[in-house]
Design a protein around this nucleic acid. Structure first.
Lengths: 130, 130, 130, 130
DNA sequence: GTGGTCTAGACCACG
DNA sequence: GTGGTCTAGACCACC
């Protein structure tokens, strides 16, 4: 579920933290769920321990995860604090770029719309089964 | 229409090339249209000349723009080459991340859907007037 | 009066020992007073027995507390040994940091001064009633 | 002005970031001022480059510093965002602990008061000379 | 030249 | 056994 792609230019620690973010947003990781240990996850993903630690630190700073010395990390929340309208502006900016790239790549509007709907549905899927 | 945000951590040259990509995708810049000169754009945006040059070089590598010595740069195409299905996979990956972030920020599904629709409509708007 | 905050990143054993230190400094626990047993306090605070034991050990090393096998722990002193001028240097270093953080957080000088006075007063309050 | 104490159990990266925080709070580093480069500061303090980088990253996350690729770091603000009343609660908690330690070390109230006043004065000193 | 990322490996602190 | 810190050194991205 959490995969890393060495050919992706996104920093590894971001690939890790974003993967966990998606799992939290989608409900695969509920509040209170335990995350794998830094060492374990580093081993599974075949990346360095410090890289995973940095990802966890970032998630903790966002308030999504709570790390406790010697007791591992748990999901603390499924909401990040911050300005709602700023978030919406960010969303629009990101979507404008993503959609532009898709259209330039030759995907027509219908394909893009379908992909968007599918992604949104995926996101809710696990959540509903609560 | 092309703006630079120095507080955005996105590299300057990417902000430039992405802005031009969006203009091409949205039809504001049609095939054959002349781009401002490197020197001029650098002056307008108050950034380094090399930074703009790098953005143009990137666009040329994508095949969107054709730069000719001494005669400026023109839009060469509104399609980048590349595998269609790879593009769709990229799109889904990007959307999954963008939507996750929006949901974690507290935006509900309806707001996200509306934003997506609005962005897609914006993208077509200019194009239709062809 | 002694509370544990699991969301505080301060190690649990330090939260315990510091709480007892404050009680001794403020006179709530006088020299000779009996401390709760390790087992009892661990139960009350719902934390591990070893954690409390470690706090007591630290207090004993400072000379504030004397633990006697099978007879519990008592306050041995309300003074820690050590260089007076070193303590003053420590105090200044700590205050410089604490005040800086307060000012950066937007608290103005008057608020900070009032808080300092209030804390000092609190500390003496119980003591005076000796 | 910024010194590192290897005998202090405070993590090095925190010693660095706190030192810079104090300089900003005290006005020694005004908004817009350039910080030394990561490499330079690491060299001056004889610590590892990554340790300084982590301190800078932390300051950037707090919004006090703005780091720009290839162009170094500058002071972005002398205020951290956050709840004012939470900051005051933090202040009181910190002061309670610091004052307790001072009293236990044998410093009498007058000495502590004088130290507090001196620290506050120091903090304002540079600022006033604006 | 600037900062960013990643690795490898060691040691410590915590519960 | 958990995470935290620090180091050393390499390579890359940016302007």
């Amino acid at each position: 579920m959490l995969t890393i792609d060495l050919d992706d230019s996104t920093p590894l620690y971001l690939q890790v933290s974003q993967g966990i973010q998606r799992a939290i947003a989608g409900g695969a990781l509920r509040v209170g769920a335990k995350l794998p240990s830094v060492r374990q996850l580093a081993g599974d993903l075949a990346i360095n321990l410090n890289t995973v630690a940095r990802a966890y630190r970032q998630l903790e700073e966002q308030g999504l995860v709570r790390v406790r010395q010697g007791r591992g990390a748990r999901v603390a929340s499924d909401l990040v604090s911050g300005d709602r309208s700023a978030a919406e502006a960010d969303l629009r900016r990101s979507l404008a770029q993503v959609f532009s790239e898709a259209r330039l790549a030759g995907l027509d509007r219908m394909v893009v719309e379908r992909a968007a709907r599918a992604c949104l549905d995926d996101l809710e899927a696990t959540k509903e089964r609560k």
